[in-house]
Each structure stands twice: as structure tokens, then as C-alpha cells.
Design a protein around this nucleic acid. Structure first.
Lengths: 256, 256
DNA sequence: AATTTGAAATTGGTTCTACCAATCTTAAAT
DNA sequence: ATTTAAGATTGGTAGAACCAATTTCAAATT
């Protein structure tokens, strides 16, 4: 039995687990917390980390991969492994598989967005700080500036919603919003070219911003609900006759 | 080189092979979809899969690990790698580490639960099928039966909420609910012993069920909101003066 | 002196081989 | 028919070697 003991970080794994991968995930996350590593910071080289943790480099890499697929880390060949910035989220690419496996449709995604974002908008109206308000306003301004460039517009659209979620003051909700919109992003980017014009969209975003700024939760919720409903319709039009189901729908969600 | 093209989502994968890990994730997901593999089914052995995909076993394993950490797959040494289904053992939540790393508080989690579950309850009241209603009723009955066994009671409590989410007819929302409650589960399991009695909790669950059964969305939402608010208070009491951040608590999830 | 170039070191990505450990299968022994 | 034990299957781990992208830094060029 590979009896690996406390690492040099002084961390002992509480229970006896054979899963070295979990061990690595745990120790690395501890390493991050103890060393106060911030987004953008670099982890020690793999060979070094593996040695210090007393595991093979393969095992370490599997553990790191786990963290990468969760969006905690980002690896760049030749450069290093870094703490990922931005809100935590599952890597959008694998997440789409998850979505496919669970038979998500875009209607489902829009409905989930509505549930989440109507609430975050309301909370933002109650809690947003000055800086957060400024961030939202910033994105609205950028949307105005990029109204003729669909790709850029979409980016700021998403950042707007992200900013609103952040202003809700609840990182959990913020993360969930991030995940859902992440799943939609790729597809949205392809259909956006066919979009007509963004004046209506723009106006709705501004209405949301104003409601939040004026501390009107009810209005903020209503505006967001309206916006998402219209976005869903617009998206359906853009989709036209393409299939709207993500992958093969299956996998019931019941419990045994 | 394997020239993989657009998947069903209309998402185009870059034709230039980037990380083989992503390649593996993609190919395995295709394998799952094409072969109609459902939860519980077993994947081919690693050595075999690796050969078929033209990658080394290590690379394959890293790809699989990625899927495992997302909850799509589950590996059992000596047995095989399986498609993960509805987790009967309530373990291994990818979000758990993210939650720890980003210091989600339980107040945040409860708030997120409220946002999600109030909506799922409302939707369930509109859409629940007979079978889904039965599943919810089943869990209520089990809660009655296990009212003297906190651990068992908690399991059925969570399954109740899962069943309600499933009855919303929206797998996306259902998945989000599952993620959030999964993050809470471990800690909750530790404090539940100190809970006094579950009669009030039981009554609230029954009220939710009745509202859904009677097709009263408003009442269902109100009941769920009330329930979660009370649960949050009860939890705060159980916690007493313990820390409320999910930080260092290392949760070890094993399977039978 | 400033810039460019390019070789070498660094670091993540991949492969190969061998072996360990848990599980399953099968057939012999009781 | 049941139990038991040996073998085969399968995931888990290890070490070394090499590939590929990036960074570093000193020499060459301007």
C-alpha cells in the first residue's frame, strides 16, 4: 500500500482514500487557499508538485485535469498552470456534453435563465454597490458602441448579465447564471449574425439597468423577465428550421 | 488524424487537434450518444478504448477523469467505468470544491435554493405527471416512516426536493437544484443529528405536495418559500457557533 | 545602444511499459 | 448445492523518455 503521509504542506488527508486523484484535488485546493493564490497566479511545475505530494506525475496530472475541467485551473503548455480568473464554472465544452446527456433544450435553458436572472436582477436592485452599478452601466455603454458588430455586441450582452448576477451579491447564483449562459453561448454566437437589429434589445437592457440603479426590484424583475422572453422568441426566429434540441434527448432525471 | 466535425448542437469543434483530452471527451460523448448508452451502462475497457481512439491509455484516462469530475462517468476499480445515473448515494458533486474555493456561505446557498426551488415547485404544480406526483408522494411517505432516523429522513428530504425538481419538467433546472443541494448535503448530514423534531418540516413538505397535486402554483411557490426560509433558520440554529463557510471541510464520498 | 535572433532551459502534453489493487469469473473442492 | 480459491479482467499508479509550446537570455546584428 502506497502509504503516503503528510505532505510538506502539513496536510493530512482525513480519511483513508485510495483515490489519489481526490487526494491531489484536495491538496492542491488547500495549497491554493493557504498560499492565498489569486486568479492569474501560477502553480509550481508539475514535476515539482508531484514530488512534494509524493505521487506520480500522471496521478498529479489527473488531479489537475479534474480542477481544469471544473474551471479552477487553466494550463498553458510551455508556460505553466494558473489559477483561473473570473467566476467559477464548469468548462463550457464539457458542460455541453452534460447538457446533451441530460437532454437540455434551449427552451429549458431559457426557462432556467429566466428563473435565475429575474431573481438576480431583483436582488441587484436591492444590493448593488456603486462599483457594480458602474460595471453594469459600462456594459450597456459598450453595447451601444458595438450595436453594428453582432459578435462584439453578444460579448457585452453576456457580460451585462454577468455583471447583474455579480451585483446580486450572491456568488452561488452568479456561478449558476454563468454556467447556464455558458452553455448557450456557442450556439448563440452562430445565430447572432442573422439577428435583425439590436435597438429593442438595447432598450430593454437599459431599462433593466435603470431599474437596478433606481432600486426598483419589482421593475428590475419585470424588465428582466420581459427581456428574456423576447430573447427567446428572437432566438427561435434565428434558429428558423434548425433543430433546437441539444443532442439526443434522453436520460430521465428521476430517482431510482 | 481524426477529423471530427460538428456535433448535434451545431457546435463546430476546431478541426485542429488541440488537447487530446478534449478530443477524448468529445469522442467518448459521441460513443455514448451513438450507442445509446444509458445510466448504469459500462464503457469498454480503457486499454481497448485507447487503442480504438488512437491515444495512449494515460491520455484517455485524463479525458475520462474530466468526465468523471463532471459527474458524467463513474469508475470502479476492477469493475469498469460506467455512465453515471441519478446518484442514489448523493455523492461526488463537482460543485463542492468550487463552493469551497470560492467561499460560498450557506446563506448564499439557501438563497439560491429558494430561487430555484420556489420556481420548480410552481412549475411542478403546472406540469407534474401522475408518475411524478406519485414519486413525490412516495418520498413524503418515506419521510413519515423515517421521522425518528435523522440520516434516513435527510435522504428522503433531499429526494423529495429532487422529485419536485424533476416534476418541473425542466432537466436544466433539475440539474441545478441537484448541484446546489449536493453541495449542502455533507454538512447538513453532520448537523442533522442535533435537530429536534421534524414534525414541522414534515407538515411543510406535505403542504408543498398537496399544492402541486392540486395544481396550485401560487400556493406551491409560497409553501416552498416558507419551507426553505424555515429550514435556513433551523440550520442556523443547528450550526450554532460553528463557522458558516464551507471552507476546509473535507468531505469524503465513497460508494458502497 | 537598442533590437533582433536563436539556442537552451523550462514546462505542460504524450507515450510506453511494467506493475499494483480491486473485482469478477470460473472451476475445483467440500 | 455451496463454498472456496485460483486465474483473468479492469481500473489505478509509477517511472522514464520524449514531444511541443513557451520563456529566458545571451550572442549577433543593426
Amino acid at each position: 500500500m502506497t502509504n503516503r503521509q503528510a505532505s510538506r504542506f502539513g496536510l493530512v488527508r482525513p480519511s483513508i482514500s485510495r483515490r489519489t486523484t481526490d487526494d491531489v484535488v484536495f491538496q492542491v485546493s488547500e495549497l491554493i487557499k493557504l498560499n492565498q493564490l489569486k486568479p492569474g497566479d501560477r502553480l509550481p511545475p508539475e514535476r515539482e508538485l508531484a514530488k512534494e505530494m509524493g505521487v506520480s506525475r500522471q496521478a498529479l496530472r489527473r488531479g489537475l485535469q479534474s480542477l481544469v475541467s471544473m474551471g479552477v485551473l487553466k494550463s498553458r503548455q510551455g508556460s505553466g498552470t494558473f489559477i483561473a480568473g473570473g467566476p467559477p464554472s464548469l468548462d463550457s465544452e464539457p458542460l455541453q456534453l452534460l447538457a446533451a446527456l441530460h437532454g437540455f433544450t434551449f427552451d429549458h435553458l431559457f426557462e432556467a435563465r429566466s428563473v435565475l436572472e429575474v431573481s438576480t436582477a431583483g436582488l441587484a436592485a436591492e444590493r448593488a454597490t456603486g462599483a457594480q452599478l458602474a460595471a453594469i452601466a459600462e456594459e450597456v455603454a459598450e453595447m451601444y458602441a458595438t450595436v453594428d458588430d453582432p459578435q462584439q455586441y453578444l460579448i457585452h450582452d453576456i457580460r451585462f448579465h454577468r455583471a447583474v448576477a455579480a451585483a446580486s451579491g450572491n456568488p452561488t447564483l452568479s456561478t449558476l447564471v454563468e454556467m447556464v449562459s455558458g452553455v448557450m453561448y456557442e450556439r448563440r454566437r452562430q445565430t447572432i449574425e442573422r439577428a435583425q437589429d439590436f435597438t429593442e434589445s438595447l432598450e430593454l437592457h437599459r431599462r433593466i439597468y435603470r431599474a437596478i440603479r433606481d432600486r426598483q426590484p419589482k421593475e428590475a424583475r419585470a424588465a428582466m423577465a420581459d427581456h428574456i422572453a423576447r430573447a427567446q422568441k428572437a432566438f427561435a426566429l434565428e434558429e428558423a428550421e434548425q433543430e433546437t434540441v441539444i443532442g439526443t434527448a434522453r436520460t430521465d432525471h428521476e430517482n431510482p
